[in-house]
Amino acid sequence: MGVETKLGNLGFVTTTLEKVVNWGRVRAMWPVLFGLACCAIEMMAAQSADYDMSRFGMELMRASPRQSDLMIVAGRLTRKMSPVLRRIYDQMPEPKYVIALGDCSSCGGIFNNYAVVPGVDEIVPVDVYIAGCPPRPEALIHGILTLYDKVENQKVKDWA
């Protein structure tokens, strides 16, 4: 509305391509539903009425990796599960981002043993790490906003 009154009814705005594309990416980030363990329960809590993640344009958890561009790895990743994780990651279309939610997926957490992968960054590249065991829903929302900052500042030359 503001544009119209200033410029008349011209119907266009000028901006940079970079900004528009990044704006679009941030406003509709669809996470793939990938709950592994305890942290997934907090991820569900973040989706629910009290915390309401949909305020940030991500009420749509997609069950299919092919429809999503953000993977929230919520919980501990075991050796048996790691090929599955990579496979799901490979199926996601570019551009894709990964959030490691919780201590376990960031670094292995309290499980320093044969079964748990010490950090999902050994399997998939991670953009944002969220600490906590489990992180509070607020922490998850903070992590997502941090990711938004990162995406908004992407440069054309970095686009894949």
Binding site: R86, C107, G108, N112, N113, Y114, A115, P118, G119, D121, E122, I123, V124, P125
Partner: peptide, 29 residues
């Protein structure tokens, strides 16, 4: 795994003082 002669599979914990050293051999994806 639960046999007593099977190692726990402990990995050295990464702190600030040994960050670089472990970072070098950590297999990032």
């Amino acid at each position: 795994p639960l046999r007593k002669d099977y190692p726990l599979g402990y990995e050295e914990v990464q702190f600030t003082f040994n960050f670089d050293e472990i970072d070098k051999r950590k297999p990032y994806a």
